[in-house]
Design a protein around this nucleic acid. Structure first.
Lengths: 207, 207, 207, 207
DNA sequence: TATGAATGAGAGTTCATTCAT
DNA sequence: TATGAATGAACTCTCATTCAT
């Protein structure tokens, strides 16, 4: 495990011996085959335990997915909100930092980010609500920054309402194509998307 | 059926009595529950035919999905390429028209667009290749326009390489949140996203 | 199949090829191992078909049990009510015929009778209600006869209220111990229990 | 706990701290869901202990059931035999007392009585034999009394052989319908069934 | 073309039981 | 004595697919 992914562990050790292996196994399985395409048997095999033992940790497959998404979205929200807190002043700087935090999360936890966007649909009830709530709060951070910048005249976009959504869309979509062996480093990617975000809201150079 | 969705029918009548109902049923089923979450029984029920009759039309569930995605991507490619053909001159105008065509496709065939992005992963082999090829050709249209605009100095973005991908990402993501009862009309949406695209590539006003 | 059990077939041929074999297999399985002790695999094996094919006939194990009990109780109610209809006059004669009809049902369909009393508890909801309703209507036939006899003074028992229940209890309990190879024939048994019933309600000889 | 059920405790304190709670939990679980329908987990939960701790007290689920039934049948046999011992003379008086003792047992330990009749079938081997032996000895008490009364001419029934079985059947069936909030008290019920028993064997008033 | 019956594989989940502590 | 973790077998039920008609 490199310094990146351990910087803030998404799935760290808990009191229960097999919890982390199971969650990681589920992450890979759901990521590769989708929630309905992956079987609990496969998760167990990957986790190096028995099928029935899975149920000592999570009461159902749906709960397993829920826990995964809960952790991913909580971590993303945490990183993003802490990033904008650090930078107090100016919508441009804050937007830049928020985007960088988001992108770095996606790079650090690419599979979790991918699963988080593609498998939420299979959650239901309270599990779903909880995850959606965290996701909405993350989105709201971007909404507010863009609204603030638009109000102050710094962001010239005539459509500030939907720009923030597109910024988040671009960032999370990274999880669908990024390969860490590729041309772009984590920092390049963060830098680049911060730039895209400011371009999208049409930041005025002179401001 | 209104003029929009029938303008170019994604799933039109063919010589085979139940083909269109089956494809439409599969579209809804896969859209609502995902490829692996939907069953052939459910597709049959929605299509108003028997389970076994499905196999008179499509040799397998995978072929059914493939046909669906093939039609969606072909239509999207067709619309987009025709849009840029009509407008011969200028990267800005061509980008604008390409985006509008893409967005209009997503609005006209929202469910198909959604299924096309979320369920490709369940295709394999030649079926997958064919679909990916059509998708890449659509993407290439945007790539070329942006490259051309960047080369001519019209698009000032320092990262022209990835900007086109983000444009397509923004357009296709519309399928995940759009509701035709919402605030934005089809034309608004097209207009808005054309604007976003030009902002993203940092079009120079003076050019 | 001898003339007795075919006199009125509990599980006869229907339009569906495997329905009767499945029901009979379930009857034996549930009878031998109890509802929860018997598995659907076992039922399938006994019926000479595949496990999954069971579900083409009955939507669940519970429905299978329900159908079994529904048929048994309906047939019992039918036999008993027809027996008392034939004999219009006199509580003594009517009680005698009702008991004989009941006993003959138990002998003719011993296993079904046994399952009907021992496995109703595993039914729930409407399935259960329906079966209980039929059972109550059968009991009511005896209740009415005893009440009538008590009212007329023919039956001297000071506890007419509960006597009818005990009569039915004695008859149905036959299913728990009877062996058709035993000392008592079907007719002996019917005769004997009719006698017991009249003794229990303390029929006055002179009446 | 009232004087009735503690008069002779079916499941009393032993040297082992959790034995009584486990037995009581099993009694309720088996009573409500049947032997195969109840799980060891459920028994543990009801007993307020852990699943694995159950096996410190009973080597298997079957042994747990066996112990339950052994206690119930022993207590029933004990009560019944002591009842007839107290009353030395006369088949009528002895039958009356035997029935009353049986009925009182059923009322005092209704759930145990119910489980004893409905779940014996799931016992096997020596466990089963032991329980059946106790049950047969209880039945034999009634058999002997009826035989004696028939021999002396006091009981006029032409079918003395099976009458005793029906008497026991009626008594034990009480466990299937009795509610202690109902119309009949424990003493009423005992009295009533003693009366039914004497009627069933056709006791001659003059004798 | 259309159907209902049939099938083997596999799904998620629970079971009684054992093990390590 | 007591526990939580672990296991392999078995459960009910559903799956995509095929067959006979």
């Amino acid at each position: 495990m490199n310094s990146r992914s351990s910087s803030v562990a998404l799935i760290g050790e808990t009191g229960r011996r097999n919890e982390a292996p199971i969650l990681n196994a589920a992450l890979v399985a759901f990521g590769e085959e989708g929630f309905n395409g992956a079987s609990m048997r496969e998760v167990a095999k990957r986790a190096g335990t028995s099928l029935s033992n899975l149920y000592n940790y999570f009461p159902s497959k749906a709960h397993l997915l829920a826990e995964l998404l809960r952790r991913a979205n909580d971590e993303l929200l945490d990183r993003t909100s802490r990033a904008v807190e650090r930078i107090g002043d100016g919508p441009a700087a804050r937007l830049r930092e928020a985007v960088k935090a988001y992108v770095e999360f996606v790079v650090d936890h690419q599979l979790a980010a991918l699963v988080a966007i593609s498998e939420v649909r299979y959650l239901q009830g309270e599990n779903r609500d909880q995850v959606v709530r965290a996701r909405d709060r993350t989105q709201a951070i971007f909404d507010e920054i863009v609204a603030e910048g638009a109000a102050s005249g710094l962001f010239a976009t005539p459509y500030p309402q939907d720009a923030a959504r597109n910024i988040v869309t671009m960032c999370s979509a990274i999880s669908t194509w990024y390969h860490d062996t590729g041309r772009l480093s984590r920092e390049d990617l963060a830098q680049q998307h911060a730039h895209y975000a400011l371009a999208l809201v049409e930041t005025r150079p002179g401001h």
